[in-house]
């Protein structure tokens, strides 16, 4: 390394500063990275500038609270990041779906929360958290354990739970009431867990959505993510 007081343009330590400042072109930056790989002192120099500049920004750039709704968007994007768009949009479309008789979800006889380790979990909650449902799936039993901790449908309506695999039409899992429930996942839905399966709750007329197609508002939605 030449001395810092040497001719302008030759000192690699200045290039390290320019690199940290983002002033190098793509080609120059790649050439400098090759140099850094061979020269730990140079890498440390660039890192030192990066650290100092980041701290300068930390000190000088004022905090700005992002909008509250962004937090949920970030969570959706991070935890459901295999999706290119929010899945619940699919719920709004009147995609053709098989007519499925809507069963009222019943408490499973052998349901013992926490008895086995679930492989997939989801917390499905509305933005104001007035509705919160937790879900856990175990492949051994093929059952989805559900706990609706809070949440009331609008007057004269019921809550209906849906599973959405990728861009497929939503499949009803039944009508939801407060408390613990257990519902089997069909092999098709279970096989979609890897690529992303979203649970969504809508409000529907008594008896459930006519024709097995959601018609009400989406009250909450979240992907099942692997534990």
């Amino acid at each position: 390394m030449s001395d810092i007081g040497g001719p302008i343009g030759d000192d690699p330590r200045l290039t390290a500063a320019e690199y940290a400042l983002g002033l190098l072109t793509g080609d120059e930056a790649r050439a400098f990275e090759a140099e850094m790989a061979k020269d730990p002192a140079l890498a440390a120099e660039a890192l030192g500038w990066g650290e100092r500049l980041a701290r300068l920004a930390e000190t000088e750039v004022p905090d700005v609270a992002p909008p509250k709704a962004l937090r949920r968007k970030v969570e959706r994007r991070v935890f459901g990041r295999s999706r290119r768009r929010p899945l619940w949009i699919g719920l709004g479309g009147l995609a053709a779906a098989a007519v499925v008789a809507v069963a009222v979800i019943t408490v499973g006889p052998q349901f013992t929360p926490g008895a086995a380790q679930p492989e997939y979990v989801a917390t499905v909650s509305s933005d104001d958290e007035s509705l919160v449902m937790r879900a856990a799936y175990q492949s051994q039993t093929g059952l989805l354990d559900l706990v609706l901790e809070s949440g009331e449908p609008p007057p004269g309506r019921v809550l209906e739970l849906w599973a959405i695999a990728g861009d497929e039409a939503p499949v009803t899992l039944g009508i939801l009431a407060l408390g613990e429930h257990q519902v089997p996942l069909s092999p098709d839905l279970a096989s979609a867990l890897n690529s992303g399966l979203v649970l969504a709750i809508t409000d529907e007329p008594p008896g459930g959505a006519p024709g097995g197609v959601p018609t009400g508002n989406i009250m909450a939605a979240a992907p099942l993510t692997s534990v």
Binding site: A43, A46, L47, G50, E51, R52
Partner: peptide, 24 residues
């Protein structure tokens, strides 16, 4: 910036960790 974004990944060593808060 894609390449430069990995500055931290490309540069090994705990050097910068030791820079005191007063450095800013």
């Amino acid at each position: 910036m894609e390449e430069v974004a990995d500055l931290a990944d490309a540069a090994p060593g705990p050097e910068a960790q030791t820079i005191a808060a007063g450095e800013a």
